[in-house]
Design a protein around this nucleic acid. Structure first.
Lengths: 190, 190
DNA sequence: CGCGGGTTTGATGATGCTCAAGCCCGGTGG
DNA sequence: CCACCGGGCTTGAGCATCATCAAACCCGCG
């Protein structure tokens, strides 16, 4: 699966040829292999990343020294640490590829320049952010109303393909449960 | 405490007199008393609400029939159910005032009209949404890394004034713990 | 073929919920 | 002005969910 950024934008707004051209100048397309670092912990996250192909994870190291995944990003998703991105403070997170991936990166300052020059793009980013907030509201609701068992079941029936795509311990981390307990649940529902 | 919408916008972008004027025509300012309904469960949430004064809560009824609060909105915050707002589907949430409040409401269609006519405002909403995503990332991180006890302590030291402002059972609901357990924690740290 | 990361298994235990009861206190009606 | 009422907060016992820890197992890869 492959998602081109310009095509993705055109699902939300119409772009002129000029805009498409300028877009490619403001952004940088990067090919990465498996387990490559996109963002190191403690460095400022100056970029916002769009996944054209592959899969990323964002995580931090918790007080017990364990990697805690807070987000995945698949084809067609944007990802960044907004606190670091907006306030230029060191990020508490790391971002890493799970598979070989192609991502489009845009620097925070360049984003603002681009939007100043191509204000028509503002709408696209607003719409993308609206969807992101909708998604995070939905996820918060699920975590309020479901037990870990229900959450696991919901996730595995909603995204069976994704379950195959990434290692179990990453799913466990994202779902906020231990690999041992995930294993128990898998057994229970197999 | 009172926050005027136009002033709030001007913390992010500059507005012309014309824009300020048009803004007031596209929006509606509403005065509500305590426990007034802003959004009823199962109705479509056509509006996005800005709190000028007072305090709102957004909640749903969980499988046990208990109100589960997912968000508060204080002065200077926007609130809506984005899934309902964007997709025009009935909302799973209700929104209600906690105190007598003044809110500014904008209809989804009117928002799009307004932004088409006043594209300079796109940037404001993008920035507001970026901050909203940053906040939800932060909250998700806290819920991953903290026990309920730590989460309670963090919240009560971060927002001591807010703890006074709303009933305890609402704080408990928002923090995802039972009133009984909150009471136990309060005792422990008093 | 052996190593090592990932997964499984099972015993033990803590966190935080449920349920039932009592208490406190502000509001309302007599 | 007082008695009562009821919503919210507290207390405590018992218990479920899910984590921790240790060990074994599995299997792909060097």
């Amino acid at each position: 699966m492959q998602v081109n950024l310009a095509q993705h934008i055109q699902k939300y707004i119409t772009l002129s040829d000029h805009e498409i051209h300028r877009l490619s100048e403001f952004t940088e397309t990067i090919h990465l292999k498996k387990k490559a670092w996109v963002l190191q912990e403690n460095s400022v996250c100056h970029h916002w990343y769009f996944v054209e192909k592959g899969c990323l994870r964002m995580f931090f190291i918790n007080s017990k020294g364990v990697e805690q995944i807070t987000q995945f990003a698949l084809e067609g998703w944007w990802i960044t640490d907004f606190n670091s991105f907006l306030n230029k403070v060191p990020s508490a997170y790391a971002i890493q590829t799970i598979e070989a991936s192609t991502i489009v990166s845009i620097h925070q300052k360049v984003l603002e320049q681009m939007l100043a020059e191509l204000p028509g793009l503002e709408k696209y980013f607003r719409l993308v952010l609206q969807k992101a907030v909708a998604a995070s509201q939905h996820r918060a609701k699920l975590s309020y109303e479901m037990s870990k068992e229900e959450f696991f079941l919901h996730f595995s029936t909603s995204f069976p393909d994704f379950m195959q795509r990434v290692p179990q311990y990453m799913i466990a981390s994202y779902l906020g449960l231990t690999p041992e307990y995930l294993s128990e649940l898998r057994k229970k529902f197999s």
